[in-house]
Design a binder for these strands. Structure first.
Lengths: 150, 150
DNA sequence: TGGATATCGTTAGCATAGCTAACTATAATT
DNA sequence: AATTATAGTTAGCTATGCTAACGATATCCA
């Protein structure tokens, strides 16, 4: 039935719209906590990947961050200047450069993540147990959508 | 009871962490659709507020976008150059400048929003009716959290 | 083997977007 | 009228995204 399909499309689009908007506003809020870390957002995001997923090359990190290589090259240069990561030339392939978070980088990341998450979590105190459960379930659903995204 | 409180805090932090991460990844995906509009993200976001919430001043728009006035001043300059908004001096208070989306701006926004949302919405087709309902409810909860955010 | 081709990363140059400090113009206060 | 407050802009810094062009290294294949 055509009318029903149309209603379903509309429902999906309204939901998509609201989720999109909520995500934007959530990140704007949370981002402000990062100011205490004295590192720009793209750097913190890249460092986070290195700390929590382990060493990788510039190209891999660029791809993980959905950014072009020259952009990642510069982000890494900044992180290196701040002594948060170090480069190690690949012994097998001289073109490749493995990136490693330094102890300083790892420490900063863990502390920062903790601060950001704690801040957001404190805002969730207003929610009931049921509301928390719904949010919890919804994140799982969203993760599934993101994984199979084409 | 202290043990229970601790468990609750931990649950909140884990949830906050997962929501944070999901929001980041969602926006990275959706953002790419905006390329077709030939306007940068901050401009599209500001224009969106003007189109969907109506005319307002630079300061109000800056505050709505959680950005400082000089930043919004420049974003609006770009939108004006592209003839997507126009400025109208406030008759009551000569310091103020009301911003209005032009017909061109309104049209672009509606089309762009449509494209972005349609793209995201198409990814939601894999979900069941129940999963949609959970996401729907969760967005309402998140909106509530954002509204009362301190 | 050695020249062509492919890959990894960097450099250069452009536009956008965030900030603070300092400025202009207008309004409000005293 | 003089002072103070408010709205917006300008100037100048840093950061982040892109493409195009380049150097260095690896790989292919005739």
């Amino acid at each position: 039935m055509q009318g029903q399909k149309h209603r379903q499309n509309k429902a999906r689009e309204e939901l998509a719209d609201r989720m999109h908007s909520a995500a934007i506003h959530l990140l704007r809020r949370v981002r402000k906590q990062d100011a205490t870390m004295a590192q720009a957002p793209a750097r913190l995001s890249a460092l986070s990947v290195l700390v929590f997923a382990g060493a990788m090359t510039i190209g891999e990190l660029a791809s993980a961050e959905q950014v072009k290589p020259p952009t990642m090259s510069r982000i890494v240069a900044g992180l290196e200047r701040a002594r948060l990561v170090k480069r190690v030339r690949d012994a097998m392939d001289g073109r490749r450069v493995q990136l490693l978070a330094t102890p300083k980088g790892t420490k900063l990341m863990r502390q920062g993540r903790r601060r950001r998450i704690t801040y957001f979590a404190s805002q969730l105190k207003m929610l009931t147990r049921d509301e928390m459960a719904i949010l919890d379930e919804s994140v799982g659903i969203l993760q599934k959508v993101l994984q199979s995204w084409t």
